[in-house]
Design a protein around this nucleic acid. Sequence first.
DNA 1: CATGAATGAGTATTCATTCAT
DNA 2: TATGAATGAATACTCATTCAT
Lengths: 220, 220, 220, 220
Amino acid sequence: MAGVLSDGATERRARRMGYRRRGILDAAARVFADVGYERATLEGIGEAVGLSKTSLYYYVRSKEDLLARLLTEVTDEIGRQAAAGLPVDAPAGERLWAFVRAHVRVVCTTPAGRVLARNQDVVLGEASSRMMREARRRHERLLRSILAQGIGDGVFRPIDVRVGSSLILGALNVAGRWDSPEGAVAADRIAEELFTMVVGGIAAHPGEAAATGTGAADAQ
Amino acid sequence: MAGVLSDGATERRARRMGYRRRGILDAAARVFADVGYERATLEGIGEAVGLSKTSLYYYVRSKEDLLARLLTEVTDEIGRQAAAGLPVDAPAGERLWAFVRAHVRVVCTTPAGRVLARNQDVVLGEASSRMMREARRRHERLLRSILAQGIGDGVFRPIDVRVGSSLILGALNVAGRWDSPEGAVAADRIAEELFTMVVGGIAAHPGEAAATGTGAADAQ
Amino acid sequence: MAGVLSDGATERRARRMGYRRRGILDAAARVFADVGYERATLEGIGEAVGLSKTSLYYYVRSKEDLLARLLTEVTDEIGRQAAAGLPVDAPAGERLWAFVRAHVRVVCTTPAGRVLARNQDVVLGEASSRMMREARRRHERLLRSILAQGIGDGVFRPIDVRVGSSLILGALNVAGRWDSPEGAVAADRIAEELFTMVVGGIAAHPGEAAATGTGAADAQ
Amino acid sequence: MAGVLSDGATERRARRMGYRRRGILDAAARVFADVGYERATLEGIGEAVGLSKTSLYYYVRSKEDLLARLLTEVTDEIGRQAAAGLPVDAPAGERLWAFVRAHVRVVCTTPAGRVLARNQDVVLGEASSRMMREARRRHERLLRSILAQGIGDGVFRPIDVRVGSSLILGALNVAGRWDSPEGAVAADRIAEELFTMVVGGIAAHPGEAAATGTGAADAQ
DNA sequence: CATGAATGAGTATTCATTCAT
DNA sequence: TATGAATGAATACTCATTCAT
């Protein structure tokens, strides 16, 4: 894959670079999760990796870049986990469950996940902004495709997928704001609860409740 | 008790003070909604009201105070609207619909509402923090009481009300992040969609879908 | 003394003005003594008299003016007390004792006195600066005249009166920095100690000690 | 221990850091001496060293810190000079003379000394406050030990050493408020005058004068 | 790779002071 | 007399970022 000559050295350096970058990203995630993006300082992050704040610039373009990379990475990681181990033609219900579980798990158990769940609204510059927006779009597209499939298959009601996907993401992200439960098991229980509500709603007798809602709307 | 004459003057003055404070709060809401709390500057807010930044301090204790007041106010306003025009013994379904509609409407159509929907995670000092926390608690308590009533009446499934209320709020707040639709009508349509999903879920045949979810969980 | 016509009203007003001014000066003294001139705020002083900070400007030109008047007043008051009850031709020793006692008493037992003792070095504007400087000069002139008289009468050694007066004032002012002893009696005991040292020095056998000092000076 | 080569570089760097800090402290001393601590601005100090005001923060924690370090340093320097060249068992008279000369010299001829003499009453935060308090305590303890020794040896009268040390310090500090005489010689002459008065008092015939004082006290 | 040194731009906050009423 | 309202000027301190080494 790599060039023949500078191969060994380059790769080694790249990997070292990767290790460092990893450490930096992780440290940033922890700090961001702790005090929030705006209140976090590069010095603090540097301290957390054992590097001077200036050295950070060797690996990362800017503070915004740091956040953008972090969120992009974790977002895509969720997507990967959501698809892992599922046949391409898995039914929508199963795919949705996998998505929910992956999202909740990451959002509950990792610093980066908490950062993702909480920093939906930071205002960034053009470059970083685009990077993040695209990752988010990928994520939503995945969820929407699941919803669309379910609707096509007749297992989901014909809802507006854009509204639906937003609602679901908003609902799942609340988990990232709770005192993070330790371990995947606890996270999975939360995921189940959220999944059940999202899929089945809260009504005991869905048809009637929906009617009630409409009735109230009409009654206004 | 007060003299007939000075009464008018006094009242006028008090109202002027009110007007000013109102104007400041509103301007702050607009600015916060535009650029986010952290990037907003007191100078910018001052400009938006036509007051020097230092004059702001005549009406407000600090930037944090500004946000806390704003969010407290708008949160309580939603609660008021959610209860308006409903008999005390209204059925849970109707009450939930009123809550959803009020929340979405405010969150979609007012700057302060957008600020509320987006700034769930700002870190504030003790005083402001408490003020906001309490408002939020009041709001959640209202929603929880609705859920509890519905469960008691058998119209809602016996879900965990804490999880449920968080999920619902998270879901509703996403509306505050969309390019705000103009007018209460559009907001109400969104509210209806969200309400329908929250109540009825997205499954075409709830029982089965839920079963699917559980099945997926077992299958993992 | 006052004009025949507007007499009653004017005088009443002047006296009212006087009362207010008094209250303001006293409050300012207390506040200055508590937190220091620079950290004191007009608002705080206003509060201490039960007046809005703006109202202060009716009685006083500025914050600096407040300090200048205060210190001028208290300085002259010490001078008055130092001369009170003494025949014009009193011996220098007695006059010095009266001076020391008056100074220490005021400096120990009154807020304004403490302000005087501690705020020797505030930098003020031209007008206020001159007012204070003159009061201080009057005070020093009094002390110097006492020293000169004593030297002329042969009861004090032929010291440099300028150095001597400064030294004495510096020595006396330290008392204003101690936790102020309540009551004139305690203050008088302090005054006696300081007076004794100033007059008699600390040497057991003055002549020899002075020789020692000179010797050390020579030895360097 | 360190490599031969990097040693030089390291040391040079460390010294540069020292130089900078030194320069900053000195500049601050000059500015504080000129306009007083409260009216001094970080920007002004920065200008005086040829550094931007923000760069100051690379070397110093805060404005208070700057003052505290400065006064601590100069206070200890006086102590050092007061002890220099004296045998440990030097007589109290000589030690006192050395103390007085050192104090007056520094206070008259150095900016930091003038700052010390004049800023006895600035109100600082906890950390800086403690640092300064301790330096002052060390200084007073030295003076008190001299007084105690002298009293024990019978060369000083049995005065209250706490009162005595305060009085002396107050008396010596006045020299820091005069237009500073250039050169150590002038300062030493002032020191001699002050020393003479402190030790021998101002009375021509100490015993009688003291009696006069007491007499005045009795007569009141 | 790593960092020490330096800085510019930004920002909340304080406070004496003015002025119309 | 008294004050509510408004402001200008000042100021300490923060932090991301650059650059030479």
